[in-house]
Amino acid sequence: MKPKIAIVSASGCRACETTMLDIHYGVSALNRWAEIQFWPFVLGSSMADLERIDHLDVCFFSGAIATGSDRAMAEMLRKKCDRLVAVGACAAYGGMPGLKNLKKPATAEAADRGDLPEELALPEQENRVRALDGVDGIDRVDAVVPGCPAPVNLVWAAVSALVCGGEADARITYAAARLPEEMVRPILSGLGPPPGAVFAGEKAVCATCSRKKEEKRFKAVKRPYQAYESTGRCLLEQGLICQGIATREGCGGLCTGVGVPCRGCYGKPPATFDPGAKMVSAISSTFETEKPAEIQKIADDFVDMTGCFYRYTLPAQCMLMKG
């Protein structure tokens, strides 16, 4: 019998679901391998449809948990699914919607001022945006595909590993997907990925970045429009805030390869404790000057470090603000 699958999006931009449609020839293969039972974006399925389904094999869940209905859907899917997969930075780490946690909800602020309108046309908001595994009713997430949006090759690797039992015709994608060998071996032998597998590399983006690294020296912070070299030197050395050093590898350095600093959409590599701390360490230990006043001046040029270093990971990987 074909495995039954669900594909859903909570609060997010739905780019990860579009990635699902973007797996080229894989789309028809997916239909051969699986029975798609619930996919609001494409099939127009409703919550009532989900309630009628007793059991699902795999669910690809994207988007952060920001509203009451997001949470209800996530909890229901956890109960009905054998394997719940977080697809994309939002479901995996909270993503950009997670930056909402930096501010009090607008409704709470209005209530503080005492001018809360009587009827709000807003969906019921959670008090904090969470990643999928941060929800109380969800004890585990079986696999994670990071990225913003999750890239096609990694999504297809996850689909063929979890849905097709590692037997899809496009086995070659494993090589392209840059997965660690320890993960590829059990998948290809039909055992499936190890529990909690992250479909990405284990090192930092710098490991696969094509740029030339010399000795790092950070003189002043620059914005991408102020320094652009399509190829050549390491972007961090040029004074751009490139987060490759605090970000999990797996993309192959796509952005840095074309001169755009890494923004950290894969979350932190396993060896890093906190991406913000790593970035502070990486940037500031390369300041050229040793004079306190000058260091202070460079440090004060950085604005919104929290929003920058934890752009995709605030609810899940920021040690001071998670939970």
Binding site: G276, A277, I283, I295, D300, T306, L320
Partner: peptide, 29 residues
């Protein structure tokens, strides 16, 4: 400064402290 047993380890601590202090301030510490 200047007395570090490892020559310049304390300067590394000094360099980090400013950016770290700013980050902590942003996060409400």
């Amino acid at each position: 400064p200047g007395d570090c047993h490892y020559i310049s380890g304390n300067m590394k601590a000094l360099r980090r402290s400013f950016l770290l202090a700013n980050l902590l301030k942003e996060m409400g510490v």
